[in-house]
């Protein structure tokens, strides 16, 4: 039963940190809460015996991605939001109510299942017998999911090209190769 209690603690903290990420005025505070958020999520993963995912969550998200966030905040030189109170109108409240209600309904439906037992071949015992989490993830990635794994490399390439295309300034092109069209600027 302690595991369940631990889960509630983690879940409550995750919710709190997520709210703080959105709610705080200072971008750096948001980023720090994001780190906490991702760490706590890693804790939940670890409790689900997904140790590999938990480790990757800490390494990649809490380690690398949030550092990038902080870099961006630093480069953009963001300051604390200065404008006054956030106004909440009646339609906003109605929308929040509907969203909250649907969330509760979904949570209720998710929780109300005949059995919470793991189905399929990937049970914790089977994974432990096969050689542990990391081994199984690696094996599945290179056997069963070889095709999507290879496609994911194309996906990452695409994401890189896409972000460069969006971020690039046209003026940066060499004078001889500049092929811009004058839009109505």
């Amino acid at each position: 039963m302690t595991q369940l209690h631990l889960f509630y603690v983690f879940a409550a903290l995750v919710t709190f940190c997520s709210v703080m990420v959105v709610g705080s005025r200072n971008p750096v505070t948001s980023a720090v809460f994001l780190v906490f958020d991702l760490f706590l999520l890693a804790g939940i993963y670890a409790m689900m015996e997904a140790h590999f995912v938990a480790a990757i969550q800490v390494l990649v998200y809490a380690g690398a991605i949030v550092v990038l966030f902080v870099f961006v905040i630093m480069l953009l030189n963001l300051e604390q939001e200065s404008h006054g109170k956030v106004r909440v109108s009646i339609p906003d409240i109605v929308m929040m109510g509907i969203t909250g209600l649907s969330f509760v309904i979904i949570a209720f439906l998710v929780a109300r299942v005949p059995s919470m037992a793991t189905v399929g071949e990937m049970t914790p015992e089977a994974i432990a017998a096969a050689g542990g989490n990391t081994y199984v993830v690696g094996m599945v990635l290179f056997t069963k999911y070889l095709w999507p794994f290879e496609l994911a490399s194309i996906l990452i390439l695409l994401a890189m090209v896409a972000s460069i295309v969006i971020a690039k300034k046209d003026k940066a092109a060499k004078p001889g190769r500049r092929r811009t069209v004058n839009a109505n600027q």
Binding site: W147, L151, A162, I166, K169, A183, Q185
Partner: peptide
């Protein structure tokens, strides 16, 4: 017919489209 591949394919097509949609002119 595999949900994971479907998801990767969907991301491939959508992320590229986001960029193709916005690349023409950053000011507009």
């Amino acid at each position: 017919e595999d949900l994971i591949t479907l998801f990767v394919g969907l991301e491939l097509s959508s992320i590229g489209l986001y960029a193709l949609l916005g690349y023409t002119d950053p000011t507009r």
